[in-house]
Design a protein around this nucleic acid. Structure first.
Lengths: 151, 151
DNA sequence: GGCAGCGATGCAAATCGTTTGCATTTGGCC
DNA sequence: GGCCAAATGCAAACGATTTGCATCGCTGCC
């Protein structure tokens, strides 16, 4: 792995931390994964495999590698998968202490994604669990609407 | 259209109503659609195209026809599409006065689906709309867990 | 009741996101 | 420096869904 020098932009400064998180799981910090993680930390908006692929320096790696890497990163808890209802998986970087539970507001015209701070359902989960007998109840909640630009 | 006789099971008695709803939209009440609607009214659990196909009397119609029919039925508001997060669309019949807004509890092991009566978000939608500037805000909320049988 | 016309259907091929088999390369550790 | 599991590229496979096209069958109309 190339040493991360002082001269790199600040946003790359945390790369060694990410490398460690990978190595802790006996996984390699390869060029492809470096690049993918760099793209993901560039902005926190959930991104699809193709979007990530498109932002990678030309042909740095195969699309299949991105799919495989994101699976792995999801497994070790470094990214979270979001399903915004259009049949495409999206991923966002997860801080180490982050359970990734959050919701989004998606524009049904332009697909802009805004993160929402509210989550009204923790106690509802408990009630549902009690009434239904289901265990380990979680939920997925996403909002849809038309953003100011598209109105 | 073959006349619906008295001797048919009670659950078919409403078929003429469904036929009317279709015709009101200048759509035909074909054999395939009759069969699909019959399957859907048999139980209210959201069903995938393939599940519906499998329940149809052998080879009554093509799978493509089911896809096309469900699109149509969705358009005219006779069925509602559900996305339970496994990449397969499911559909359930909608009563005429029903906006179809409901949520489900899905077993992540066996895919059993239970309908949930709660919806905690109407006022949250309003708040989100006000803060974000988005219009026509709706939401999708599904719960996941492990059902008693699978535990 | 019969007919024209548009909507519906069957079939096969195309699409799209995603996964996988396999041969080859490479990062990490001694 | 060298080993070995892990990672990658490439192409083919996959599953859900869609579509082009020729044919068929409801429906409204006479």
């Amino acid at each position: 792995m190339p040493a991360v020098t002082q001269s790199l932009p600040r946003r790359l400064a945390e790369m060694p931390v990410l490398a460690d998180r990978l190595r802790r799981h006996a996984r390699k910090f390869t060029g492809a994964r470096q690049a993918i993680l760099a793209v993901l930390r560039h902005d926190s908006r959930p991104m699809s495999n193709k979007e990530i692929f498109a932002r990678l320096p030309g042909g740095l790696c195969d699309l299949a590698t991105i799919y495989r890497s994101l699976h792995l990163l999801e497994e070790v808890g470094m990214v979270k998968r979001f399903d915004l209802g259009d049949g495409v998986a999206r991923f966002a970087l997860l801080r180490e202490d982050d359970d990734g539970h959050r919701h989004h507001l998606v524009c049904t015209r332009c697909a802009e994604v805004v993160e929402i701070e509210e989550c009204c359902t923790p106690e509802v989960e408990k009630r549902i669990s009690e009434r239904s007998g289901f265990k380990a109840v979680t939920h997925r909640l996403e909002f849809f609407g038309i953003c100011p630009t598209c109105q």
